Amino acid sequence: MSLKQPHVAAARIVQDAGGELVGRTRLQKVAFLMQLAGFDKSFSFEYRHYGPYSEDLSQAMDIAVLLGPVDEVERVADWGGRYSIYSLTGEVPGVDYDADRSSFVQEAKKIDAVELELAATAAYLFEVEGIGKIYPGNPWEETARRKPTKVVGGRLAKAAQAYENLRKIKTVNPLPELPPLGQSI
């Protein structure tokens, strides 16, 4: 389902997350995975340095913060970068509760931010760019090639497991089945 007011769709993600969502990158990746799962088609995504990204979603969240019902608090991370904490300040107008959608979002938001980024990137490379689906290769290996500093410490395997766990959740459309690590078409 696509909402006519993108800022309402952005606020709904925070609502489905239980009223709070930490991180702009997490917001982007959760929204992309929601789209793959068939819960929403409100935003278009393209590949950027941090994986799937939607400028439409970024702008919609800015409007949701400006008009309500979302509040954004910016904090400085230990490593010096900035991150946002989004929280609901009121009801999201015209949005029906969907238990499956909410369950999916709440599970996705629990995934480590870097592992979520890796999982969403692999899914994007498979589903949108066709790596391992139409074109030769493996989306996990391509993710590792594009993000070598983020896959250290077994994070790629953890991301693959987290993605498989999301695939087990009831969705409108099943998340795509990605080739296992080390297996290419």
Rank of each mutant, 00 (worst) to 15 (best):
E74R: 15
T121W: 03
I134C: 07
R101A: 13
E115Y: 02
S102I: 03
Y97A: 15
T121L: 07
V70L: 01
D71F: 15
V95H: 04
G90R: 06
S102R: 05
V92C: 04
D100I: 11
V152W: 11
M61L: 13
A144F: 05
E129A: 13
V70C: 03
I111R: 01
L116R: 03
V114S: 10
E72S: 09
G80A: 09
N138S: 07
R101N: 12
F126D: 01
T143W: 01
G81K: 13
Y135N: 10
V151I: 12
W140V: 00
R82T: 12
D71W: 12
Y135I: 12
D100A: 14
P136L: 05
A99C: 14
G137L: 02
A144L: 04
F126S: 01
Y86W: 02
K150N: 14
K147G: 05
K150S: 14
I134D: 10
A113Y: 09
A122S: 07
R145T: 11
E141L: 11
D78E: 15
M61C: 08
A123K: 02
L118K: 03
R101L: 13
T143G: 03
S58P: 04
A113E: 13
V95W: 03
K150T: 15
A144M: 05
E72H: 08
L57Q: 01
I111K: 00
D100Y: 10
L57R: 00
I134M: 09
P139A: 06
E129Q: 14
W79H: 13
A64G: 09
D71A: 15
I131L: 00
V152A: 13
V151S: 03
S84E: 11
T89V: 15
G81I: 14
G137C: 04
Y97I: 11
E142R: 14
G68A: 09
E91T: 12
A64P: 06
P148D: 11
I85N: 09
A99R: 15
E127G: 06
F126N: 00
E72D: 12
E127T: 08
D96L: 15
A122D: 01
W79M: 09
G153T: 08
K147S: 04
V105C: 00
V70S: 04
A64V: 08
Y124L: 05
S84L: 13
D62N: 14
L67W: 10
P69A: 11
A122T: 03
P136Q: 06
L66N: 13
L125V: 05
N138K: 04
A64E: 06
L88F: 05
A108L: 03
G154T: 09
V65M: 07
G137N: 04
P139M: 03
Y124P: 01
I131Y: 01
T143M: 05
D96M: 15
L67E: 14
G130R: 05
A120V: 01
L118D: 01
V92P: 00
E142T: 13
A64D: 07
A122L: 04
D98T: 10
V114I: 15
W140Y: 10
E127Y: 06
I134F: 09
I131H: 01
G68Y: 06
Y83K: 08
I111P: 00
V73I: 14
A113I: 14
Y86R: 03
R146C: 08
L125N: 01
V92M: 05
S84N: 14
G153Q: 08
V65C: 07
I63T: 12
Y86M: 02
V151E: 02
G132D: 02
E72L: 09
G132T: 00
P139Q: 06
D98F: 07
N138C: 07
E107V: 12
L116F: 07
